[in-house]
Each structure stands twice: as C-alpha cells, then as structure tokens.
Design a protein around this nucleic acid. Sequence first.
DNA 1: ATGTCC
Length: 470
Amino acid sequence: MEYVQERPYRFRVEPRDGMRAPGVVFASRELMRDAEKSLEQVVNVATLPGIVGASYAMPDIHWGYGFPIGGVAATDVADGGVISPGGVGFDISCGVRLLAADCDRQTLEPALQAVMDGLGHVIPRGAGPGGVWKPAGRQELESVLEGGSRYAVEQGHGNERDLRRCEDGGAVAEADAGQVGERARERGLVQVGSLGSGNHFLEVQQVAEVYDESVAAAFGLARDQVCVMIHCGSRGLGHQICTDHVRAMDSVMARYGIQVPDRQLACVPVDSPQGRDYLGAMAAAANYGRANRQLLAQAARRVFRRTAGAGLDLVYDVSHNLAKIETHRVDGAERRLCVHRKGATRAFPPGHPELPEELRGVGQPVLIPGTMGTASYVLTGVTDGDAFHSTCHGAGRALSRHQAARTIGGKQLRARLEADGIAVRPMSPRSLAEETPEAYKDVAAVVEASEGAGLCRKVARLVPLGVVKG
DNA sequence: ATGTCC
C-alpha cells in the first residue's frame, strides 16, 4: 500500500480505485510501521458513500471489524452519507470515566489495601451476568436506555454535577428503546453496573506528572492526587444491538445501490429507516454504557468513603466507540455530519458550546486508558484540532490474547505488578496474562504522536496504584 | 469487545 508523509506525524494515501476521499494516518514513523497492517481498512472506509474530508486513523490504529480500531470517518447526512455499525464497533459507547479523589497518594497509602479489597469485593467483572444494580423490570430498563446517567442520578445514584461532567449531559436524546431487540434486553437486564472483560478495568491511580498546571487545575487535578479511572462499555446489550443491526443492514444495503469492498462495512444512508433504526438503538446502548459507568462510580465512591474516608468528584466521562450527528465546517460551509469514532476519542476545543461552563475555557478532557503496568493520560481538545475534533483512545493492542498469554503466566505477572507497588484484583490469572503490558503498544508514544499531529495536548500522566480487572 | 459458535 503506497503512502506519503505529508508532514511530521501525518501520512496520506491518495484516492484511487473507488476511494471517495484520501486516507490520512496520524502517526510517528515508528508507529506507522504498525499502522501499515491496517491501511487496507483505512482505504476501504474511504469508499463509503458521502464521506467528507478523509478516512482518518489515529496513532493507535489496529485491525478491527470493517473499520480499523482508531478509525474516524464523517459522512454528509444531506448528501447520501451512510451510517455503518462497523464504524462504531461491537462495544457501543465503550468509554472512560475519571474521578478525582480529595486526597493524595501519601494520605491514601495506609488504606490502599482496604480500598482494593473493597473494590475487589463489590465490582462485578468478567464475562456473563452480574451487575451492581438490577432494573426493577422491562420498564426500568427502558428508562436506563433512554435516560443513561441522567436516569441513574434521578434514582439517587450520583449528583447533578456528575451530569455536567458527562458527554451529552449523561444521556443521548435520540435513543429509541423500541429498536433494542428482545435478546439485547435480556442480556442488558442483568449487567447494569459491571466492568466486563478484556481491556476493561477499574484502576486507582496517582497523578504522576502534570504537563499543563492551569488546565489540570481546571480539570480538578494536581500532582500526587489519587484518581479512579473506569474503562467499560455496554456489555452484551451493545454487542447484541450491533449484531442485530448489521444483519438488518446487510439485507437491505443493495436496495440503496450501495456496494462496499468488505461485507463488514455494511451500511445504509443515515437518512433512511434502517439508518434511523440503528442510530436509535446505538444511542440506547450509549445511554446504557453511561449508566453502567455511573453505577460503577457510585460503587467506588461507597468503598472510598467507607475504607478511606475519601470523596470522589467526576472529572469527565467520554466514549471512544460512537457515531454522532455533529455540525462541522467543511469547505467553508456548515454541514451536518455523521461522525464515526471507533477507538477514537472526541476532543472538543476550548470555547465549544457543548462543554460545561467551567471547562469551556480549557477544552474537553480526553481520557486515555493505558495498560496495567504503565500509565494512563489526560489530554485536552485543541482549537485547530483535526479529524473532526478526534484523537487517540489508548495504547492499542500489539499481541493477540493468545500470544500475550504465552509470554507470561497470570500468577507471575501479578507478582511482578505487586512488586512494582501495584495492587491487583484480577478475575482470573489467565485473563490477567492476556492483558500484560507487553501486549500493547507504548501508550506514551501514541500520546506523543497524537499531540505532535496537533489533535490534542497533554495535561497529565496517571500511574496505577491498584487494578481491578475483568 | 462478546453467554469468545445458533
């Protein structure tokens, strides 16, 4: 696959063979070598009807279902633009929530093991059913699907300030629970407030480094401060919605005269019955994901209060697997676009009207989960951000689960992490081994490249003190 | 990611 370097941290594939836009990859030269393996998917996405700008890829790009993970593509709604579930991913609204504790690492130290034991006890994790909160019935599940974090807070699980610090105020308005199928509901009923497995986690962290004091202060973060980061999604419910709607789209796509180079890029016009159906169901899954993170945060708050006498304030909650209808300026005109971000994080700039007043001067907090043994990052959106104000979402996998588990045993890894001062509360040794830090790219390099490409700015680096893993 | 295959 041929590409050229346009400038530092930016590579380009010229349009050819059915591509309606160029491909653009933000990466260092070194990360670009990894990215090459997924360029075919970047090129495939560029053939989607109505695509504007480019088919973009973030520095943590890797192979995914249809779209690459780390892919961003926007389509023009009024110009036959399509919506593709492959551009969102199976884990709809997977995302990150960061809470800042009212104590620093030294103060927490004597209580850390008790905090970790408490979290290990109350945080449901791993595949299958189990959640901290059970909706009373079908009716209440619908309330979660339509109300997200807002509904959870209305029921006493959090406060109004939490909602200001959630993307979309905690709930996407366009959710349509009627488009959530029976099996998705069954699966969703028993998993509200659960982590799941794979790279999902709840970590107790410490602010190890601050790159921008004033932005960090606006986010409520300072050096040595204790934080809690929660990374999870919409569990079986989102997965089932994706499965159901891909099938529905696949069977009608030809009727719209749409051809795609990969069946996994199934799509329909945003402005079509099937497009609206998927967007309504996707929004419902998005709300489920936010309620999920809200309820896990409440569980963490109870543990911190009881075992350490500490409080937790929400810094922000943002998804990195979602499609959204947003207005952007394209070729000098305001256009309504369907922005797919799959393994890419929205990064609104300072002054954006959708940011809460107290953050409007500094930009949107962007939360980047790293790996267990290394670090996570807090970034902020920038004024001249590219790719429809998007940036990276994490380290990005480098080894398969199988390969990872071959490099180290779970017990050995746990011993190594504990020796490094990181308390670990895993679901099983095997699941831990699959998530060994060596299985991931260097998150610092990914963040460096994202900043170098002009997508965001670094605010703080967080290191783990304790990890609860699915 | 996912009741890791309906």
